[in-house]
Simulated scan of single mutants.
Amino acid sequence: MARIDGKTIWITGASSGIGEALTYLLDEKKCKIIISARRLNELQRVKNNCINKENISILEMDIAMIDMAKSKTSEAINTFGNIDILINNAGISQRSLIIDTDISVDKKLMDVNYLGTVALTKAILPFFVENGSGHFVTVTSLMGKFGSPYRSGYCGAKHALHGFFDVLRMEHEKDSIVVTLICPGFINTDVAKNALTGDGSVQEKNDTATANGISPKSFSIKMVKAIEKNKHEAYIGQKEKMGVYLKRFFPKLLHRVVLKSTVK
């Protein structure tokens, strides 16, 4: 097992939720951390809450602006002179039926959740190859393994991430590059509040399942353990994790279970 302590790590989506909790945990482990998101004031708040502020660098960035991926990657590398781990955490969710969802919403979900992550990954990949090491950690979702109503575009983007990073792992294992896919279930964050509805507006309200999810801190502890073990995939949540295995072995049963669920 490779300890994460003291590593240089770049985290996207670090201004709240999982990214914020992960920053605090890695700060305790004396990592050098580059934190990125769109909201500069929130990134500053996160940094101010850290113990080793000298090890925290802020890099404001909109993951959907894929033309900026290369320049932002150069900035990130130059910050501490190295990056050991890229944690692709930035993303946005959805709560709308397919028939009610404008195609512009599907595009935004792909731009943020898939293409933005792929662009950043491709930008830093040559650096990892040249160094002969590097670890891509991508936060997908259990929705990247099976589907659920009201999340069609979100599921599509998360499924796409699995396809891309599975191939990246195969192509660059020879370069000692590691890929870990982290699949959260329900985590008590603002993901539901920030989810897009059919017309592209923000839902602005939580749901019961998300509110009753595990805490970002508990999630981050499990996530770091998976990273240190170089796991290919890790499913982190509560009973909803069983959906992965039902999909694999009993797909029709999963279909019935999801349709009977009150989760929206």
Results as ranks from 00 to 15, higher is better:
F164I: 15
E240D: 15
L254D: 03
A226P: 03
L26Y: 03
S148D: 07
G6T: 05
Q94K: 10
Y245P: 04
R39Q: 15
E75P: 00
G116C: 08
V129Y: 02
I177H: 00
R248Q: 15
E228P: 00
A76R: 07
I18L: 15
W10D: 01
K260T: 02
N230Q: 12
G116Y: 06
L22A: 00
S74C: 12
E228W: 02
K205T: 12
G13L: 08
N212Q: 15
K241N: 15
K225H: 09
S71F: 10
W10K: 07
I92C: 00
A209I: 08
K260H: 11
E42I: 04
V129R: 15
N49T: 09
T117H: 00
K205V: 06
T121D: 03
K145Q: 15
I18W: 00
V179M: 09
H135L: 07
L26T: 06
R39A: 11
F80C: 01
N49H: 13
D166A: 13
L22T: 04
I18N: 05
S220Y: 05
L115H: 13
I77N: 11
G156E: 04
K229Q: 12
I66C: 05
D27T: 09
M110R: 10
E28P: 00
S201M: 11
C50T: 13
S57T: 13
N82D: 13
M1V: 07
V191C: 10
N230M: 09
K30R: 15
N48V: 07
A37Y: 05
I92E: 00
L120S: 04
G243E: 08
T23N: 01
V202Y: 06
K7Y: 01
K32P: 01
F165C: 02
Y150F: 15
R151F: 02
S261N: 08
S104L: 11
D166R: 11
Y245D: 10
N78V: 09
S74G: 10
V178M: 08
G6V: 02
G81T: 11
S36Y: 01
C50I: 01
I182W: 00
D5E: 14
G243T: 02
A226F: 01
F249R: 07
T189N: 02
L59H: 07
G198N: 08
V105G: 05
S133V: 06
I63P: 00
P149R: 05
I51F: 13
S218A: 13
K231N: 11
S220A: 15
S201C: 04
E75L: 08
I66M: 07
T262W: 03
R3T: 03
